[in-house]
Computed example of a mutant assay.
Amino acid sequence: MFDLISQRLFADAPQETLYHYTTLSGLLGIVGAAELRCSDIRYMNDSTELRHTLDLLSDHVTRRILSGVDNPALLTTFLDWLTHRVVSGPMLFCASFRGNGNLLSQWRGYSVHGKGVSLGFDPAHILDCALRQGFEVGQCVYEPALQAKMINEIIDTLETLAGQTPSDVRAESENERWMALFQSIEGDLLRISAVLKHPAFEEEQEWRIVSPTISDPASAPVQFREGTSMLIPWYPFCLRNAAAELAIEHVFLGPTSNIDLSMNSLSLYLRNAGATPAQPITYCDIPYRKR
């Protein structure tokens, strides 16, 4: 039942060019290795990742308990379980794309002045790469009413499944069954969380590639990089299709004080790497000053 909820979120396919913002250093890594480094959802740039869905669930469950539900113990136990699983649960890796490859907020957030690019990929290419690697592609949901409806459906389904416990089951056994139920839906909850974003980020028009859930990092190609204040787990997403093509469709060069030289060297690099975009490179034309 929960898998049907998450499947609906990943049912729509992108039609527009998908842009990935990065630094020049990131560009060298992406093109050189022909892969994206997908970060665990808990370690992504937006500090509200995962926490936003947890807050929505917590608010909704609290309102239900206060209104008088048949089984408040179930919902209380569920909230307690969620709180503990936020940090220590299975891993889920994501990478972000935007429908708009030239947003000032993204140049500020994902690149350094004079060192930013957004790489545009054919959506069919990304979908093909995702399918071959067991990833899903989903558009982020920002509309509060749609998020509330989805959270309501999640709790309805949880109560329905938990209500199937036989009435003569002892309390200890019932709690154990609840824990087994929570664990069985954890992967779907993570996938749902990956595409529910705070409404403040709506202008980003974000799409995400989302990995399978990983319970044992030692059995998967999980790697680590240095972050600002901690190590960041990441998972490789190969950008080559079955024909071994990187297939970059378009590139925006971000704000820089050296437009001509930067455009020239970027073009030379992509050509030498065999990754010349299908369309000419475009300068962003945004008057963003380094401070």
Rank of each mutant, 00 (worst) to 15 (best):
S96T: 00
T53C: 08
A34E: 03
N272L: 13
L190T: 01
G254I: 01
T83S: 14
Y19R: 06
F121W: 10
R225S: 12
Q147I: 07
V137Y: 00
E204C: 05
I209C: 00
N258E: 12
L104Q: 10
L127T: 04
L146R: 15
I192C: 13
L196G: 03
P280H: 11
C129S: 07
E176C: 05
L246N: 03
V137S: 01
G227W: 01
L146W: 12
L146Q: 15
I155W: 02
S267P: 08
A200P: 01
C238L: 11
L261M: 13
L18F: 04
P199W: 06
S229G: 08
S193H: 02
P233E: 03
L4H: 12
G68A: 06
T256Y: 09
Y235S: 04
S88D: 12
S167V: 05
Y110C: 02
D188T: 07
F135C: 06
A247I: 06
W234I: 08
M179T: 14
A218T: 15
P217R: 08
V117D: 03
L261C: 12
M230S: 07
G163M: 01
A242H: 14
W107Q: 03
D168C: 09
C38D: 07
A95M: 08
I5F: 15
D156I: 05
I286F: 15
E186Q: 11
A220H: 11
L119I: 12
N175A: 10
E245H: 14
N241H: 06
E143K: 12
R225H: 07
R108F: 03
G120D: 02
E249K: 15
I126Y: 02
D188H: 12
A218W: 10
K115C: 10
H198D: 13
T228F: 09
R271S: 12
S88L: 06
E245L: 13
D122W: 07
A273C: 07
D12M: 10
S262R: 14
V61D: 00
Y19L: 04
D260Q: 15
S67Y: 01
L253N: 07
Q7N: 14
G68P: 00
T228Q: 13
S58A: 11
Q279A: 15
A278Q: 15
L270P: 03
T22N: 03
P212D: 05
F135D: 02
N241W: 04
L181P: 01
A273K: 13
D12C: 12
S262L: 10
S219R: 15
S67R: 07
E153M: 12
A242W: 10
M150A: 12
L246H: 05
L74K: 02
R191K: 15
I192G: 00
V69W: 01
D188I: 06
A33P: 01
S105L: 08
E202D: 14
R289N: 10
R240V: 09
V210F: 04
D59I: 04
W207H: 00
S105R: 10
A130K: 03
A33T: 08
I286H: 14
S184G: 04
V112M: 14
L56Y: 05
T256R: 13
R225Q: 11
R37V: 07
T23L: 09
D128S: 15
R291Q: 11
S96C: 13
L246P: 02
G109F: 03
Q133W: 02
S173L: 12
T76C: 13
A148F: 07
D260I: 13
I248F: 09
L18R: 05
N175V: 05
W107S: 05
F224P: 03
N264G: 08
T23K: 05
R225A: 08
A13N: 13
